[in-house]
Write a protein that binds this DNA or RNA. Structure first.
Length: 496
RNA sequence: CGGGUAGUAGUUCAGCCCGGUUAGAAUGCCUGCUUUGGGAGCAGGAGGUCGUGAGUUCGAAUCUCGCCUACCCGACCA
């Protein structure tokens, strides 16, 4: 079982807290391969909830799932100049297709005779293989739009990795759409951003800022990148999802044209959009505390755990007579409930363990409760517990789950608001940015200025917000560095 | 990828500097009894290719070199 050494507190070493929590809460662990993680059943159960909720939303937008190959011909990557520039440095390459026994010793070696004529790239993203395919699917405006998504793994040879936040291999979904008009594609990219934002806030209880990426931060090959940005408890920003308007870049690179209603041959317009297992990192760093994981009820694999406290079998039977109906009624309401009658661990152990795992609501019932007709109910987000009458407990739990979902969202939003501030001078900026949080400041819109700021402060423009942040109103001003005109404040932060 | 630190039982670590019986502790694990309302107690027990490969040596966890992995700092990161 998990050992019971306390987690390193967040205030002592945030990074260490995160690393320990991921492992101790049984979410994931390091594998034998550098930068590649094993997602454990509990962590994967949460990812499956994320997938299910997103997939439902994608399908409501007309998206259908498909699957494209893991391996991409090397030549495809180089078709779109900016795209290859963005990914070339972090690609894993398959060069051979056979091993053989080592003639001088033990084990196997690469068979040099089995060198591939054209090397294959393990996908870092699938635009190229998908657009080479779309070419065959599209000839008329009647074939459009194409709205495909795939759930898959991708690989980027990252120099520095962290479980969930940046791994060499990760799981994600990538949506790739093809449209007849620019407007339709742009709208679609925006609409998927809204889907992500709604999902993040309602399901994951993570408040996000919707915005546009600056040219420096834009996806390689995109004309425009939209994003949702979240603030972690250490004040750093984390990009939680992106949606790209790709223009006709990939259509031109892969020669994907269609005949319009007007009988004109035109290039197709494209979008792509994705979220990854990085969301697991966002989830952890938004809500969890020094006792362990805190899960939003909407994603918790177990929403309610019931712990009977007993000495002998007949006592357990008496308790279960009361608890089974509660569990059944919760289940009937669609609430994911677990009754833990395991007698191999003490109640105290179980309490601590379920807190570490982030189970939102815990019920406990013992001999005293049995006599009094009561039950103990504890909520993970506030760590409050009270003993209440067993009458009406089901309804109380139902509303408590909703309340927890709302409360952790509000708490995260309050935190973000408290750590978002406007700064007007570059001197002030340099001081403020060290303290973490989102800094709203004016920028002249040039990559040069952004690069200068990054070089001097490590802060980057997380996004140009699409709407005012709560309590702030963005107006035109002058760039804090150059004094040139600025259309409005942008969000700066240190980031993951 | 550069600089630094580390890798010994499932886990956290001691031992290494100064090479030499059978490699230790805590915790976890197993068995039994007693327990069970916040990570229980007692007794007994199992568990280690000392990351890996080479080298030095009569002898290597210990010294040397390569490699692998993790962590920290940089660089990089749609």
């Amino acid at each position: 079982m998990a050992n019971f050494q306390k987690l390193t507190p967040r205030g002592e070493d945030y990074s260490k807290w995160y690393n320990e929590l991921v492992v101790k809460a049984d979410l994931a662990e390091q594998s034998a391969v550098r930068g590649c993680m094993v997602i454990k059943p509990y962590g994967y159960a949460i990812w499956e909830k994320i997938q299910a909720e997103l997939d439902k939303r994608f399908k409501a937008q007309g998206v259908r799932n498909a699957y494209f190959p893991l391996l991409i011909p090397k030549s495809f990557l180089s078709r779109e100049a900016e795209h290859v520039e963005g990914f070339a440095k972090e690609c894993a390459v398959v060069t051979h297709h056979r091993l053989k026994n080592d003639p001088n010793g033990k084990g196997v070696i690469v068979d040099e005779d089995a060198r591939l004529e054209e090397e294959l790239i393990i996908r870092p993203t699938s635009e190229t293989i998908i657009w080479s395919t779309y070419k065959n699917w599209i000839s008329s405006y009647r074939d459009l739009p194409i709205l495909c998504n795939q759930w898959c793994n991708v690989m980027r040879w990252e120099m520095r990795t962290r479980l969930f936040l940046r791994t060499a291999e990760f799981l994600w979904q990538e949506g790739h759409t093809a449209h007849a008009t620019k407007e339709e594609a742009e709208d679609y990219a925006r609409r998927m951003l809204d889907v992500y934002a709604e999902f993040a806030e309602k399901v994951m209880a993570i408040p996000v800022v919707k915005g546009v990426k600056s040219p420096n931060e834009r996806f390689a090959g995109a004309l425009n990148t939209y994003c949702i940005e979240a603030m972690m408890q250490d004040g750093k920003a984390l990009q939680a999802g992106t949606s790209h308007f790709l223009g006709q870049n990939f259509a031109k690179s892969f020669d994907v044209k269609f005949l319009s209603k007007e009988n004109q041959l035109e290039y197709v317009w494209a979008t792509s959009w994705g979220v990854s297992t990085r969301l697991m990192g966002a989830l952890i760093m938004t809500h969890s505390d020094d006792n362990g994981l805190v899960l939003p009820p909407n994603l918790a694999p177990t929403q309610v755990v019931i712990v009977p406290i007993y000495k002998k079998e007949d006592q357990l039977a008496a308790l279960m007579e009361k608890l089974n109906p509660v569990a059944d009624q919760l289940q009937a309401l669609g609430i994911r409930v677990k009754v833990d009658t395991d007698d191999k661990y003490t109640p105290g152990y179980k309490f601590a363990d379920y807190e570490l795992k982030g189970v939102p609501v815990r019920l406990a019932m013992g001999g005293r409760d049995l006599e009094n007709g009561t039950i103990e109910i504890a909520r993970r987000d506030t760590m409050e517990k009270e003993t209440v009458s067993i009458e009406g407990i089901v309804e109380r739990i139902r509303t408590m789950l909703e309340d927890i979902q709302q409360n952790i969202y509000q708490k995260a939003l309050d935190f973000r608001i408290a750590n978002t501030r406007e700064v007007n001078s570059y001197e002030e900026f340099k001081e403020e940015v060290k303290k973490g949080g989102f800094i709203l400041a004016h920028w002249d819109g040039t990559p040069e200025t952004e690069e200068l700021i990054k070089a001097e402060t490590k802060a980057t423009i997380r996004c140009i917000p699409l709407a005012d942040l709560p309590g702030h109103h963005s107006e035109p001003g002058t760039c804090m560095v150059t004094g040139k005109p600025s259309a409005g404040r942008v969000v700066f932060a240190l980031s993951y």
